[in-house]
């Protein structure tokens, strides 16, 4: 009896330690992967420079669309901008959503660094972005024509991400 109890305790402790050892290897960077495969919300967003609204369900006209959240006050956004430009040169449709920004600053930003967006929308309160599950900018979402999310990137995209986006959208 005593032996059985000790064996059970030892084995369960052993298993527990294996789990703890495994836990050391886990990458603890936050991601929102569970949104991948789900549709983007169908909401109205105001154009940055016009008093009109755009409904996101209209993006189903594009084969693939890249949605990019940016702001002029966001440092990392400047870093990823050149990759967005090259993506737009490869004829990927990119929608820019200007996040909690002033209109003037945003336009200045696009003048300085170039405008990769075929559509520039705004979210000056940041509330609309919550519907996309955005938690900090920059964030980039690739959707297909069914409006399903294929890829989601938190933080600035780099060269590797850019190539991945090209592959996923069938350009390369």
């Amino acid at each position: 009896m005593k032996k059985i109890i000790f064996t059970i305790i030892s084995i369960s402790l052993f298993l527990f330690f294996i789990i703890l050892f495994d836990s050391l290897k886990i990458n603890r960077v936050y991601n929102t992967e569970e949104l991948v495969g789900k549709p983007i919300p169908s909401i109205n967003l105001e154009y940055l420079n016009e008093d009109k609204y755009f409904n996101t369900s209209d993006l189903s006209k594009n084969q693939f669309t890249l949605i990019n959240f940016f702001s002029s006050w966001c440092g990392p956004c400047r870093k990823e901008h050149k990759y967005l430009i090259s993506l737009s040169e490869k004829n990927l449709k990119i929608v820019g959503i200007n996040f909690k920004d002033k209109k003037q600053n945003a336009n200045q930003f696009l003048n300085d660094l170039g405008n990769p967006y075929y559509l520039t929308l705004e979210d000056n309160t940041g509330k609309k972005s919550v519907d996309f599950g955005v938690y900090g900018i920059p964030e980039t979402i690739l959707i297909n024509k069914n409006l399903l999310i294929i890829k989601k990137y938190i933080g600035p995209i780099d060269k590797k991400d850019m190539n991945e986006i090209l592959r996923s959208s069938g350009i390369k």
Partner: peptide, 22 residues
Amino acid sequence: RSGILNSVHTFANDPSRGLYIL
């Protein structure tokens, strides 16, 4: 000290530390 927890008080994380203590 292993940094496997998400906490307010976390020290700088280092998995090798966690491995030793474990």
